[in-house]
């Protein structure tokens, strides 16, 4: 039995189709990522999975229980960390934790082993009101509160949005620890580079899921040959490079341009020479695609059709 099973699920807000015919299955014990830009439908899907919103059609089950009918039972089994800070700002760290433990009919002591790793970072501030914690600490407290009733499935809605690179990395370390304790973890994010942290990823855009795979699996689905082009003034030449007959897409990745071609006999040396004839002195290497290359490929296919 999958930990989360979503079948033909749709949801509209008036005229706006937030989710169209979503099918998704998350295995028990998996660290699963839902990746897509703002407005793609991530929060709507998460609110349905967490029993907080009803779908228009289709269904979602978590641990075999239906989110529509078995919501009371499910709420005790799911840990949920919403996108906005939702703890009591005027209660201190310890009081928040005790409160959430109390609501779920358990105690902090009973489940302390589960949150120990996170909570020891918070301990020095346990008497500080939650509203006065730094962003990273607020998040750690929210995560502790979502775990305090020892959920079987943990669901986090964009925990890394607006968070700096250091806190993001710490959060992912914690999520790996939670996964290692056997808790199925479902995370949404708009950051493509976080895909590699997940066992499997679903890509979502405009309410539709257009692929579920492992990060490597996605990379292997990239249909073109890919080159990394490095040149000090590459930004000046993007338009003319895109005009090249052999160019499918060309987008910047860090300090390099990822140049995709469907001319499979094109070699790095050929491309280097072509670029040189256009006045661009560049270093060219053939590279393996990543998941972000695949996402870009899908987005540009869609805008063509």
């Amino acid at each position: 039995m999958p930990a989360i099973q979503i079948t033909n699920l749709s949801k509209a807000y008036g005229e706006v189709k937030a989710l169209s015919d979503i099918n998704l299955s998350v295995n028990g014990g998996e660290l699963f990522g839902l990746i897509g830009p703002d407005g793609a439908g991530k929060t709507t899907l998460i609110r349905i999975i967490t029993t907080l919103l009803l779908p228009d059609s289709g269904c979602a089950t978590v641990l075999g229980l239906d989110t529509r009918h078995d919501y009371k039972k499910l709420r005790g089994l799911i840990g949920y960390m919403p996108a906005v800070f939702s703890l009591y700002s005027d209660l201190n760290v310890e009081e928040n934790l005790n409160f959430f433990a109390g609501v779920f009919g358990t105690s902090v002591r009973e489940n302390y082993d589960l949150i120990k790793g996170i909570y020891h970072m918070l301990e020095p501030f346990k008497h500080r009101p939650a509203g006065k914690l730094s962003g990273g600490m607020k998040q750690k407290l929210a995560l502790s509160c979502a775990l305090i009733h020892r959920p079987k499935v943990l669901i986090l809605d964009e925990p890394t949005t607006g968070v700096d690179a250091v806190s993001r990395m710490e959060l992912w370390d914690l999520l790996h620890e939670i996964k290692d304790k056997g808790i199925t973890t479902f995370v949404s994010t708009a950051y493509m580079d976080e895909a590699k942290q997940c066992d499997r990823v679903a890509l979502i855009q405009k309410g539709k899921i257009f692929g579920v795979n492992s990060p490597n699996g996605f990379a292997q689905m990239f249909p073109y040959k890919l080159f990394a082009v490095y040149s000090s003034n590459i930004w000046l030449h993007l338009e003319s490079i895109r005009q090249m007959v052999v160019c499918e897409t060309a987008y910047m990745f860090g300090n390099k341009l990822h140049f995709a071609t469907n001319s499979f006999d094109l070699r790095a040396e050929n491309l280097r020479e072509s670029l040189l004839s256009m006045g661009i002195d560049a270093q060219v290497d053939e590279i393996e695609a990543g998941i972000e290359d695949y996402f870009i490929y899908q987005l540009s296919e869609k805008s063509r059709s």
Binding site: G36, P37, D38, T161, G162, A190, M192, Q205, Y251, M252, E292, F295, I296, L299, S300
Partner: peptide, 9 residues
């Protein structure tokens, strides 16, 4: 913040 990979580029 929050836009798709093409829009960002």
């Amino acid at each position: 913040s929050g836009v798709d990979p093409i829009a960002r580029r």
